[in-house]
């Protein structure tokens, strides 16, 4: 699905990613853990093509298409979806309008007909009820005045509507209460199948109690230093990260 080779990236001339190698095959869920400032969120943003970051070396490919130089929207259309850590508010722009525009941009790219308002609405309502959200959610402005939980649920609603190939969850679990965490996990589990992939970036084990990862990576100072199974998560919960430092 996604192949990242020796990726280096910086922001404001400060190097953050120092040679990342990561491959997530279709059907797998990978987790990246690491301390604050280790470059986890930078990696998520660079995968999505955030132009605040400069790619200094290496490459990113989606299904053998090199996307390193691709624009943000074209990557999105190629199937990359970022669940934002801090989803930004866009006052006055309704969720329904925004979401349908996004969905239809994807459908158009895939050579499908645009979805009409009614079909869209039925589709969205089904997802909303699974997420325990009221239909009125669609009438609100994007992320405007949303609680922390609502913002993350809105991201999951978008994930399930757009149905991308790769979902990157950038600390989606932070700041959520248990109920919201369960809802988010339920959404992600509903999303994942053998044809898509998930990359979870997190500090904590708690989300992983609900979503079982196939591979766990530990990141220190812009590099992946250790990869393995769930036992790595348990070790980190117990011992922190210092044992990884030379």
């Amino acid at each position: 699905m996604i192949k990242i080779k020796n990726l280096e990236a910086s922001i404001d001339d400060k190097t953050i990613l120092k040679g990342i190698d990561l491959e997530i095959p279709a059907g797998e869920v990978h987790v990246i853990m690491g301390r604050n400032g280790s470059g986890k969120s930078t990696l998520a943003n660079v995968i999505a093509g955030n132009e605040a970051y400069e790619v200094d070396g290496g490459s990113i490919a989606m299904n053998d298409t090199d996307i390193t130089e691709m624009s943000i929207e074209n990557r999105a259309l190629e199937g990359i979806f970022l669940c934002f850590q801090y989803p930004v508010a866009i006052p006055g722009v309704g969720m329904a309008y925004f979401l349908r525009s996004a969905l239809n941009a994807h459908r158009k790219h895939q050579g499908k007909d645009e979805m009409d308002a009614l079909e869209f609405l039925n589709n969205a309502k089904a997802i909303l009820s699974e997420l325990g959200l009221d239909d009125s959610f669609l009438k609100r402005s994007i992320n405007d005045g949303f609680s922390g939980g609502e913002k993350k649920k809105s991201e999951i609603l978008q994930l399930l509507t757009i149905n991308p190939k790769l979902a990157v969850l950038d600390e989606t679990d932070s700041g959520l209460d248990v109920d919201a965490l369960r809802t988010v996990a339920k959404g992600v589990n509903k999303f994942k199948n053998e044809n898509n992939s998930v990359l979870i970036i997190t500090h904590y084990q708690r989300l992983l109690n609900y979503i079982k990862p196939d591979v766990v990576h530990l990141m220190i100072d812009g590099k992946i230093v250790e990869s393995g199974d769930m036992s790595l998560v348990e070790r980190v919960e117990k011992d922190g990260y210092s044992w990884l430092e030379k």
Partner: peptide, 26 residues
């Protein structure tokens, strides 16, 4: 960040600008 958000959802820059401005004028 608003433009990035819209672009990340596959919405072109032009459409994102008019969407944000129309929202601003709502």
């Amino acid at each position: 960040d608003q433009l990035f958000y819209c672009n990340q959802r596959g919405i072109k820059l032009d459409d994102a600008v008019s969407m944000i401005v129309n929202g601003f004028c709502k």
